[in-house]
Amino acid sequence: KLCLVCSDEASGCHYGVLTCGSCKVFFKRAVEGQHNYLCAGRNDCIIDKIRRKNCPACRYRKCLQAGMNLEARKTK
Score class of each variant (00 low, 15 high):
V31D: 04
L2T: 15
S7K: 14
K49S: 10
Q34D: 09
C58A: 00
E32T: 12
C55R: 00
A66Q: 10
A10I: 05
A30S: 07
E32C: 10
S11H: 13
D8M: 04
N43F: 11
R52L: 09
N43T: 05
K49V: 14
C55D: 00
K62L: 09
L64A: 05
R73P: 12
A57Y: 04
K24N: 10
G67Y: 04
K76F: 13
R59C: 03
S11P: 06
R61D: 13
L18C: 06
D8G: 06
Q34W: 05
K24Q: 14
L4H: 05
T19F: 03
P56I: 04
A40Q: 13
E9R: 14
C55G: 01
P56V: 08
R29H: 08
R61M: 12
V5E: 00
N36W: 05
N43S: 09
N43Y: 12
K62S: 05
Y15L: 05
Q65F: 09
D44I: 03
E9K: 15
C39Q: 02
D44K: 08
C3S: 01
K28N: 08
K24G: 11
C58Y: 03
K49I: 06
L38P: 05
Q65S: 12
I47V: 13
K24H: 10
C45T: 00
A57P: 04
G21F: 07
M68G: 02
C39R: 00
R42C: 08
C6D: 00
N69I: 07
G67C: 03
H14N: 07
C63S: 03
S11I: 13
I50W: 11
C63E: 01
C13I: 15
G41E: 09
K76D: 13
Y15C: 05
C39E: 02
E71T: 07
G67I: 03
T75W: 15
D48R: 03
C45Q: 02
K62Q: 08
A10H: 04
A72M: 13
R59V: 01
K74Q: 15
C58K: 00
K28M: 12
L64E: 13
N54K: 15
D48Q: 03
Q65N: 08
L4I: 15
C3F: 01
G21I: 07
L38M: 14
S11W: 04
R61L: 12
G33W: 05
Y37N: 10
T19W: 01
R42K: 15
E32Q: 07
Y15P: 05
Y60T: 03
R29P: 02
G12R: 07
V17T: 15
N36K: 14
I47T: 06
R73F: 08
H14G: 05
G67H: 03
G41A: 11
R29F: 05
G21E: 15
L18S: 14
I47P: 03
C63Q: 02
L18W: 12
F26S: 02
K49C: 14
T75N: 13
H14Y: 08
V5M: 02
C20T: 01
V5W: 00
Y60N: 03
K76R: 14
K53F: 10
T19A: 10
D44W: 03
A30V: 14
A10C: 05
K74T: 10
Q65D: 14
M68W: 01
T75I: 09
G21W: 09
G21Y: 10
A30M: 15
R59K: 03
N54Y: 13
R29L: 11
P56N: 13
L64V: 14
K24D: 12
C3Y: 01
I46V: 10
R61N: 13
A66K: 14
K62P: 01
Y37I: 07
C13E: 14
P56F: 12
C63I: 02
D8H: 04
M68L: 05
G41H: 09
R61Y: 07
G67N: 04
C23Y: 02
C13A: 11
G16L: 02
C13K: 11
G41W: 11
A30L: 03
A10E: 04
C23V: 02
A72W: 11
V5L: 02
R52K: 10
N54G: 06
K74D: 15
N54A: 15
F27N: 01
P56A: 12
N54R: 09
C6M: 00
L70Y: 14
Y37A: 08
Q34R: 12
A30C: 08
K49T: 12
Y60V: 04
Q65L: 10
S7Q: 14
S11C: 06
E71R: 07
A72E: 14
G33S: 09
E9L: 14
K1E: 09
G16V: 01
C45S: 01
G16Y: 02
G41P: 00
N69Y: 06
G21V: 08
A57S: 11
E71N: 11
N54Q: 12
N36T: 12
H14K: 06
C20A: 01
Y37R: 04
R59D: 02
T19I: 08
A66V: 14
C6I: 01
A57V: 02
A66N: 11
K1A: 08
P56K: 06
K76A: 14
K49F: 11
N54S: 07
C6K: 00
Q34P: 06
N43M: 09
T75S: 13
K74H: 14
R51P: 05
N69L: 06
T75R: 11
S22F: 14
Q34M: 13
G67D: 03
D44C: 13
V25R: 15
